[in-house]
């Protein structure tokens, strides 16, 4: 029987050290897991695991600390950017990231995120936009599209009554304190690769002390949208991307100079 020469084996895919081996509680087809993996890969590649302090938010990603293998603190709903400010100000040489949903960041936590950005707080924010409140069972979020049905907009979001969705990247990009604000999507391989590059840039921004960075990631929520995983990814591409155009919203002069 032939033995496999160890030298011929090449590991092309494995679990990053920054990811624990815990099975996640995320629904099938949810892109939180994709985002976790990308963040973990970049942290490994940059050798930042032992420097990283995560600030978890309240939402489906509340247990992010079970999956991402570094120090974490857990913020009250919406307050992650304030908590991250507290951590970063006493540990300026460490890396600090928040991981927030759209209800968390763009509704209850709008005050905290705007001011963290305005202060140019040297932290990185991962903003997962899935157009609804996932954890509480799919209610309308500030990012819910006009006409989109949710459990609290059962006939579709009526902008006369519920107002219009908030485009957080555009909004935060108007602030002088923001250094790196981009929107990416996790609905296909190409966009996932682009998201990973952006994560790298955001961490490079923080590492160099260049100020506030935020990556919005359009995400799927098949369970609460009531569709299967493939349809959910298609919905991101067809419905969310037109309303939330992908692109770079703010790249400061200093960040433009970064060469990796």
């Amino acid at each position: 029987m032939a033995t496999i020469e160890p030298m011929l084996e090449e590991i092309v895919y494995s679990r990053p050290e920054s990811l624990t081996d815990a099975a996640t509680h995320y629904c099938p087809g949810c892109t939180h897991g994709v985002a976790h993996r990308l963040i973990a890969e970049v942290i490994d590649e940059m050798g930042l695991r032992e420097k990283m302090i995560g600030v978890a938010s309240v939402g489906c990603s509340v247990f992010a600390y079970n999956y991402l293998n570094f120090d974490w603190v857990q913020a009250p709903h919406g307050r992650a950017p304030a908590m991250a400010t507290g951590v970063k100000r006493v540990l300026p040489d460490k890396m600090v990231m928040t991981y927030q949903g759209d209800g968390d960041m763009a509704s209850i936590g709008m005050g905290e995120i705007v001011h963290a950005a305005a202060r140019g707080e040297n932290i990185t924010v991962f903003f997962l936009n899935n157009a609804n409140y996932g954890m509480t069972g799919g209610q309308m979020a500030p990012t819910t599209l006009p006409g989109q049905k949710t459990t609290s907009s059962p006939t579709g979001r009526d902008v006369e009554n519920a107002g219009f969705p908030i485009r957080a990247s555009e909004l935060l990009s108007t602030l002088d304190g923001s250094s790196y604000i981009v929107r990416r999507s996790l609905h296909d391989a190409k966009n996932i690769r682009l998201a990973k590059k952006a994560i790298r840039m955001a961490f490079e921004t923080q590492l160099r002390g260049l100020g506030f960075s935020m990556i919005e990631m359009l995400s799927s929520c098949p369970t609460n949208w009531g569709v299967d995983p493939n349809q959910a990814l298609a919905w991101v591409a067809e419905k969310m991307v037109p309303y939330y155009p992908l692109g770079d919203y703010k790249i400061s002069e200093a960040v433009k100079q970064i060469r990796i």
Partner: peptide, 26 residues
């Protein structure tokens, strides 16, 4: 040492919370 005039008392207490979790006198 660190000083931030927060955007609100919500901001302030959560900055305190963060620094406290980092083990600082706050």
């Amino acid at each position: 040492r660190a000083f931030v005039q927060a955007e609100s008392e919500l901001g302030a207490i959560n900055m305190v919370y963060g620094a406290a979790c980092a083990g600082a006198r706050v």
